[in-house]
Design a protein around this nucleic acid. Structure first.
Lengths: 363, 363
DNA sequence: TTGTAAGCGTTATCAA
DNA sequence: TTGATAACGCTTACAA
């Protein structure tokens, strides 16, 4: 045993201990330490094992994931690209996905696009460069090429909420058609007859297209079956700065209702808030002058006016399932692309009660 | 020149091209390619440079950040640990930080604690294992040791919003004391006399402590100066499930006001919502029966009742500055720990208008 | 100005 | 069962 053997301290003080430090400390080879780490039970003398164990503890050693990734070609990293962290839906999904990843021993690398879809390619490239083993995408897919590249390079991809054109990948989403029917039927039952579907600019975003189409066909079907007395529906695309147009759309909606009750379905929380703002400007009362059901239930929904009726998405499950799909693929599952659609849940509150508004109800 | 030279294709098809592939393709050494990448202008013949450039383009080569990190000991990664992504404040900070990092060529690795402070150590370890060059922490600092370790290992740390006990690090935050005074003074001016400060359980969270302390000293000072007629103040810690206690606290607050106007300051958006919920249960009107000013301005603030008066934090700037501090340190800045405090901004809305509530005002 | 070779911290293949 | 040793993809002395 060489006399200059140093005890309980890495060669370069201050720096992280490496596998070589541990080997020296334990008086074994690097290979042995590595084996202890990866195949503990199978091929080690208990004597040596404990020596290594002690050394590891003494040096507070933990292996470098970077080096492991380099060697193994696998990183235990999953990339998540989100169009906009500001969107509560995205955040909720993020939470679910994170939980699932964590349980499976993966770390989530988040990339936020800040609603700038041009950065999508950049994000995917950065993430794949870091050897993420798979990607969860909640993005527009404008730059379909990059994602498709990743898929071709054997990296599994899961799409959440938004399909990408021409992209073969697992897809996890709300059952948009069903959710729209849920909301629209609720409005009709509550007595609202002249309907308006308010969406953000469709712009080829799949979820928006699906919701609008579902609304259209609901109206068509209702007319066919001659629902009492007559259901009519129009659609409107709302933008951030275009308040006047929205006000105007609501005014003419009410006019068309001719004393009957006008009802609005808003396609996400942001739009809901725009409609609410418009109502405030017009001086109309939620529920009384206009019925409103909005996609996405939020913590504040119960407290806007008489409470907002919403269609809640199972965000946590969506995130968990997205991560779950990915991990299954990473574990070798070889199936054609799956679609997983989850149902929404209607939470009825004051904004769809045509009688006098009351204090908020359900939470 | 050996005859078996292969053109325009990496050795192993399907896999990412490596520096060796590029070298082979260009007929130069790996070192030359590396030099092209890192010191393009200084030490290369333009002839060779273009050959390398062409090869890189042909193979769509981009260097592996993992390998670079391993070799250089630097990763161009910054770790961000957030106590809770659900908190809109955290998300807003995240956005600011991300922008700054991106501009400086860093990638943000996000770790969300899901409000489980026990995971903090784990998060920091995971992040440092991935060789992040610095850390931005928006956490409780319960596990102060781990963060301190990181700092000792030479990784700069920036704390946002929450100080860690015994931790020498840059600190970026709202000027809590000033913000509380802003809100409290506003309530008093608006005619509310009997004040209540509602916070989440203080639990040693620095920002909560600072806000409460500021409230206490505001009340004390006001009494000293004999503000008209008399200001009195109490504090209350609210929890998720403890609705009855909050209702009770508000009832007795109003009682103490003896026909005068009671006013509440809530210490963040979550608490604000709890107060709003309580008011709904009690059947009280915002502004009229009780004044309310809440920390954190949100998109929905204008639409709760007559509009919520809020104290807006400059979240974007907080995030940008936090990242900025870190990057300065990474660039070698050697200064004692700094504190950067930014002022809040009061947005007066209907919830602090003692007269009849009106339709929402400012946005 | 370019190439050779060593090494970053691992794991895997071979012998011993 | 354990130990050399050669990669993984990159950077950087040092030579040429």
């Amino acid at each position: 045993m060489p006399s200059q053997k140093i005890k309980s301290s890495p060669a370069r003080p201050g720096a992280r201990a490496t596998i070589a430090d541990v080997a020296r400390e334990a008086g074994v080879s690097k290979a042995t330490v590595s084996r202890f780490l990866n195949h503990r039970e199978t091929l080690l003398t208990s004597d040596i094992a404990t020596r290594v164990e002690v050394a590891i503890a003494a040096l507070a050693y933990s292996p470098s994931p970077m080096a492991q990734a380099l060697k193994r070609g696998r990183s235990r990293l999953i990339g998540l690209v989100v169009a906009d962290v500001t969107n509560p839906f995205s955040v909720a999904v993020l939470r679910g996905a994170e939980k699932a990843c964590q349980q499976a021993g993966y770390l989530l690398m988040l990339f936020n696009l800040g609603n700038d879809s041009r950065r999508e390619g950049e994000a995917i490239k950065a993430l794949t460069a870091y050897q993420v083993e798979g990607l969860i995408l909640n993005t527009l897919g404008r730059d379909a090429g990059t994602a498709a590249d990743a898929a071709r390079h054997g990296k599994p991809v899961v799409l959440v909420d938004r399909r990408h054109h021409d992209m073969q990948a697992d897809f996890v989403s709300l059952d948009n058609a069903g959710a729209v029917r849920l909301g629209a039927a609720h409005l009709v039952e509550a007595g609202y007859r002249e309907l308006l579907f308010v969406s953000e600019p469709i712009k080829n975003v799949s979820s928006r297209m699906e919701r609008e189409a579902a609304f259209r066909s609901f109206v068509a079907d209702a007319s066919d079956q001659g629902m009492p007395p007559v259901i009519r529906g129009t659609t409107f695309e709302s933008t951030e700065d275009d308040r006047d147009r929205l006000d105007q759309a609501l005014r003419s909606l009410r006019q068309r209702a001719q004393g009957g009750l006008p009802g609005v379905i808003s396609s996400n929380a942001v739009v809901t808030l725009r409609v609410v703002a418009s109502l405030a400007r017009l001086g109309w009362r939620l529920g009384v002058d206009l019925g409103l059901v909005g996609f996405d239930d939020t913590e504040w929904s119960p407290y806007i006016g008489p409470g907002l009726t919403t269609i809640a998405q199972p965000t946590d499950d969506l995130g968990r399932l997205a991560a779950g799909c990915l991990i299954e693929r990473l574990n070798g599952l070889d199936l054609p692309p799956r679609q997983i659609l989850l149902s929404g849940r209607l939470l009825a509150r004051g904004s769809t009660v045509a009688t006098a508004p009351s204090i908020s109800s359900s939470t």
